[in-house]
Design a protein around this nucleic acid. Structure first.
Length: 171
DNA sequence: GACAGATGAAGGA
DNA sequence: TCCTTCATCTGTC
């Protein structure tokens, strides 16, 4: 049983991100748009009027630190628990595989498909990347198409290019 | 059950 | 090279 989400903003040099937490962990991360404002992908119930539970405050500190590290092109040392309830086993496998990618390291959709044990499910990997609710921390930007082509990115290719450039990736 | 998709590989110009 | 076509697999409606 999942209760409402708690939304907490994360101010960075790139704008204000919005983290959504459930009682399980970090459930979603929204990117700022070109104006530095958050553009939520879906509506979430805000309970900011209530006191934020202590565990969520701890997770938020971890999320903030991790996000700033990744935006600086470095590895997120410690992540809060991630809430992937309601997601399929296949999607979770794809995201776990992406979590193992170090900054500056990239894989193709085909290589990720191999890691999850289904080398021909390359298109499905693309679909799972697009369904990733926690971009940046789950580094779907490190997954490129074959031949180092940029591929796609749900939050905008500009973000993908920018994040990869910070990690020193050439494509 | 049909369709779409952030792919990849092969073949032709 | 570049473009087109097709095979493949999964998620969503």
């Amino acid at each position: 049983m999942k209760t409402g989400l708690v939304e907490l903003p994360i101010a960075t040099d790139d704008g204000v991100f919005l983290a959504h937490y459930s009682e399980i962990g970090l459930a979603e991360l929204d990117f700022p748009n070109a104006d530095g404002l958050v553009t939520p992908k879906r509506s979430a119930r805000t309970v900011n009027s209530k006191p934020v539970p202590l565990p969520i405050l701890r997770w938020h500190r971890l999320t903030t630190a991790a996000l700033k590290k990744v935006l600086a092109g470095r590895a997120a040392q410690k992540l809060p628990p991630l809430d992937w309830t309601g997601k399929t086993e296949f999607q979770q496998s794809v995201w776990r595989a992406m979590l193992k990618l170090a900054p500056g390291k990239t894989r193709s959709y085909g290589e990720i498909a191999e890691v999850v044990g289904n080398p021909r499910a390359v298109r499905a990997v693309g679909g799972a990347c697009g369904a990733n609710p926690i971009p940046v921390l789950v580094p779907c930007h490190r997954v490129l198409a074959a031949n180092k082509k940029i591929g796609g990115f749900s939050s905008g290719l500009d973000w993908k290019r920018s994040l990869l450039a910070r990690e020193g990736v050439k494509f």
